[in-house]
Nucleic acid binder design. Sequence first.
DNA 1: CAGTGAGCGAGCTTCCGCTTGACTT
Length: 782
Amino acid sequence: MQKKLVIVESPAKAKTIERFLGEGYTVLSSKGHIRDLKEKDFSIDLDNNYKPLYEVPAEKKELVANLKKASNKADVVWLATDEDREGEAIAWHLYEVLGLNEAKTRRIVFHEITKTAIQKAIENPRTINLNLVNAQQARRVLDRIVGFELSPILWKKIKPALSAGRVQSVTVRLVVEREREINNFKTEASYRVTALFNVTDTTGKNVELKSELNKRFATKEEARAFLEKCNGTDFVVEQIETKPTKQKPAPPFTTSTLQQEAARKFSFPVGLTMRIAQKLYEAGKITYMRTDSVNLSDLALSTAKQEIITIAGEKYHTFRQYHTKSKGAQEAHEAIRPTDINQHTIEGSQQEKKLYELIWKRTIASQMSDAELEKTVISIKISDCTEKFISTGETIKFDGFLKVYLESTDDEQEQKSKEMLPKLSVGQPLELLIAEAQERFTQHPPRYTEASLVRKLEELGIGRPSTYAPTISTILNREYVDKKEIENPPTAYDLLTLKNGKIKEVRKEDKATVDKGKLSPTSIGFVVNDFLIEHFPDIMDYNFTAKVETDFDEIAEGKIEWTKSIDQFYKKFHPNVTEALENTGKKTGERQLGIDPKSGKPVFVKIGRFGAIAQIGEKSSEEKPRFASLRSNQTLETITLEEALDLFKLPMDLGEFENEIMTVAVGRFGPYVRHGKVFVSLPKDEDPLEMTLEKAIQLIKDKRTADANRQIKSFPAEDIFILNGQFGAYIAHNGKNYKIPKGKTPADLSVEECLQIIGDCEKIKTQKTSGKRSPRKATTKK
DNA sequence: CAGTGAGCGAGCTTCCGCTTGACTT
């Protein structure tokens, strides 16, 4: 019997497919790319027409060896990698590295994992599309050129270990430009007028009606004048308009919409959403989670239909086929959906359950009928006024998909109440109970969240489903952007109230709010961004990716050679690199804030070796300048002279406690109090400049009790301590930490048992390290 | 882990897209 080998990208997919194919077939996976440009080397031969120098990375050697063994034994090898640029390239690398030949190799693709789809694919093989492979090589080489030529410029001109790239740098740009919009935003005040009426409805009952004026007033005087006009005048129902509207369900999830909705509904960071989705995928609960497609398989469409009819009835079902709108989508997979649509819930962690149910609801809702609504607008005429009061209401005539699921919105404005309005008739009078004119302020555009930034990237066609979450991690790890709580101070506003014929004015205050999980640029982020925009405007253009994608498409269609396309790019790009290296000095983002009133010396802020610093005095002067690091919530761009001068008040002596001096200062890990050799971090909301001796003593005392509780048991003679740590109890000995095996009660351990555990751990460690090293050495020898 | 920013130089850092583990005391 013939031996048949199928290679796919994902192990989970391999398992499923093996089940469908049955006897005679072995299905293995490549786990993504098996070969790439060398990790730490430019690896593009510029003297040899951009020839890429590929290597199998160390961690893939074993896997490749196993694939080679299997393919040598096989009579036929099907390369079933994804149907997109990257998938085609993986197939080609497999072909090359495994030493396959045309006679025994078949290239197949499928977009859904069903028995019929797979069998059909097996029956319709093709050969590897080298044009598509070359489009991928162009993509890969371009990204390497951009990343590995730009990053070193930043190391020289700004700070070591920074990075730049086609995707990450424009991502940072989005955050930087939004922050500047916010900084330049001028809030404007206006007066919003609302009214509460008493009215008799068509059944003769007395009811209340809320209404809002169709105009806002720019000044308090105008608002007051209007309320005076309202006082004692007549109000009449002028018009009642009802119109039916429809609401459509949202399409099934793609990676980016899943990330957005999990963020809105559960506040999940995008990385968490992906980790949970990966678990669900590996357990066979959902289809592939890195996709840009909204397409559902025929099987999914028909089971969804049955399910909807069972749970809600025939009229709730509407057959819908969705089409991807996002730029550069490659649609190698289905939308994200439950593999088994009959299953409404699953077993698993709370987070897994939540995410699964969200996916289930979204999938089901996407095949349900439109919701039918009726919108009612009542306009109220005010005697002798051109302005009108307007009441709007909405009622659901048929819930349709709303029975299951409603997509959330990012809109932070208060949701307008969608209540039912009373039945009234045109011409009837209303009695005004209260009218209020409230001062409102325009809001600056919102900072991006992880998820809203991903949405923007997708909109611009920048990045891919597999890179959205990692890109966010990169710009956070490089400290170009910060995810932190941003406090909005309380805002005071004026409120005019007309009641019982009198107008009263009060000053009120909205509570302070805290923005959580919002992204804002750091000082480094600002400086790197400005440098790149100045010298590499083409790369930093939001349309750069879209432009190169059209080149890649032409390569894929065989219209142009990939090396020619890269050459055109490089000939323009590289001179910019040389120019930036040769003709620019250090870029520090230096800014003079003013003069220090004490010394009369100038005060600067700039990027130093370890980040943003403030500086008093100049280097050239006789006296050395003084330096102080900026706090994590300050940036070069926004810090004021006063705030900068405050930084120099630290470290500050607080006084003595137990014959030791106490100081307060700000270190690498934030503000702290020091007492001799003991350090204690300040609580989050505590301002170091407000620190007193009393508060500092309390902090030290608190730390002492915490330390005492930390210790479960100790054998000082043997230098063994059983301590409570972040991840539970552990043993500390000779400067090292050891895990306590499961099933042991930490408090009951004896010295002997502890020594036993320490001995065992040491043994395992040496085994692990030697075991890992030997095969690697063996492979490198070959 | 709780500074640092004199200057020099060696040696290091870096991209995007595919994929899944190993692993926290």
